[in-house]
């Protein structure tokens, strides 16, 4: 499996989609801090926004940066779908499957390499959070203090998990559709619209009697987990429960991908 991971990291490193994905994630956090800083410098441009400067300081960078998880996970889903789907359209899956590793080893190696990429995205988000918060603190002449190491580690873990759920969903869809365009489309429609509508519908049935079902959706759990860093209300979903549900989603998407690659003909 190490050889498959090595091969995948080699090709990911040079792949434009992976580089653009990483750059967009960095840009998201930079824009977040940039807007906050602009509102501090020019309060008149958005007088109603009432920016909370405390959230922009280094002590709170984990809380602030995890707020980028939502859009970043969409990017992780798109890159995952592109990776898996284009393996079919370029015929590179056939090349991989006719080398030395078996099908399941190939799938495992590929997903492992992709999870390293989502770890890199999580690190980029936090690194941009550090950089942005230091700029704000320096501009405000505010003393720099950092969150506890355990909180930074938890923030990294939460971001990695949320991005990995979306990434493995993208890989599963790319494998299912055997081409990138349909996989990206289906993933975005599900993640950004369909899931929200379904959750809203289910949560409204019989005065919320089926809320427990709505709480099983990945979007609800991702939000609950990332919001927990800011101390915001997370409803019925505790961070611990969110982690378990999200891990289950990763396992389901990985198993679905492995089953598809194992059972279907590679054409």
């Amino acid at each position: 499996m190490i050889s498959v991971i090595k091969a995948d990291l080699r090709k990911h490193w040079r792949r434009p989609a992976f580089r653009v994905g990483a750059a967009l994630v960095a840009l998201l956090v930079a824009v977040n801090y940039g807007i906050g800083l602009a509102e501090l410098i020019w309060p008149s441009i958005a007088p109603q926004s009432g920016v909370d400067v405390d959230i922009l300081y280094p002590a709170n960078f984990v809380n602030n940066a995890t707020g980028a998880a939502g859009l970043s996970s969409a990017i992780a889903m798109i890159v995952g779908a592109l990776m898996a789907g284009s393996d079919y359209s370029w015929g590179t899956l056939k090349t991989a499957l006719t080398q030395r590793a078996g099908r399941l080893t190939t799938v495992a190696g590929r997903i492992a390499a992709y999870l390293l990429y989502t770890a890199l995205l999580a690190l980029i988000i936090l690194a941009m959070g550090v950089a942005g918060s230091v700029v704000v603190a320096t501009y405000q002449s505010h003393p720099i203090s950092w969150p506890a190491a355990i909180d930074i580690a938890k923030g990294f873990g939460a971001l990695w998990l949320v991005l990995s759920v979306s990434g493995t969903l993208g890989i599963a869809l790319g494998t299912l559709f055997r081409q990138p365009a349909a996989a990206v489309g289906a993933g975005l429609i599900y993640g950004l619209a369909l899931q929200v509508l379904i959750v809203r519908f289910i949560a409204g049935i019989n005065d919320g009697q089926l809320k427990w079902l709505a709480n099983l959706f990945e979007g609800e759990n991702s939000q609950a987990l990332t919001r927990s860093f800011g101390g915001a209300a997370t409803g019925d979903i505790t961070p611990e429960r969110a982690v378990l549900v999200l891990l289950a989603y990763v396992a389901i998407y990985v198993a679905a991908t492995a089953a598809l690659v194992r059972q279907r003909d590679a054409t």
């Binding site: 370029w90 015929g91 090349t95």
Partner: peptide, 27 residues
Amino acid sequence: GSLIEAPGFFPYLSGRENLRVVADLAE
């Protein structure tokens, strides 16, 4: 060693890099 239908390689990698990826897969 096999070449089935059209060669399957990554268009954004050079010929050499593509072979290195295959070499990694084949150990």
